[in-house]
Amino acid sequence: MSRHEKGRPLPSGIDEPVFSEPWQAEAFALTVALHEKGFFSWGEWAEVLSAEVKAPGAAQDGSDYYDCWLRALEKLLAAKGVAPQHDVDQLAAAWQRAAHATPHGKPILLENDPECGQ
């Protein structure tokens, strides 16, 4: 059986930056920090992450790896009751509104959300 029969080419091996967007680095670091505080074992984390990266529809080139990572972290934190999904949804929407309402070049603050405090 030749490798061509298996069809799926590997992504190119060129050296890419460790993180392609800042949020990936943050999601990664949050996980490492929470693990260091003993919120979960690394085995527990690997299991949750594995379920996400093995889900049907995961990109063959691994480009959505940190999307999987973030989904896994959200699920784990929701399951542990630390950050319920509803809270994350609401807060994420608030951050997005704040980002839109913040003039370019200024730091984005949650207080800039036009609906903040309503």
């Binding site: 949020w23 943050e26 949050l30 973030l70 994350v88 949804d89 994420a92 951050w95 980002a99």
Partner: peptide, 9 residues
């Protein structure tokens, strides 16, 4: 994704 990470943080 960025907003969701910020929310978690």
């Amino acid at each position: 994704m960025a907003a969701r990470v910020r929310a978690l943080e």
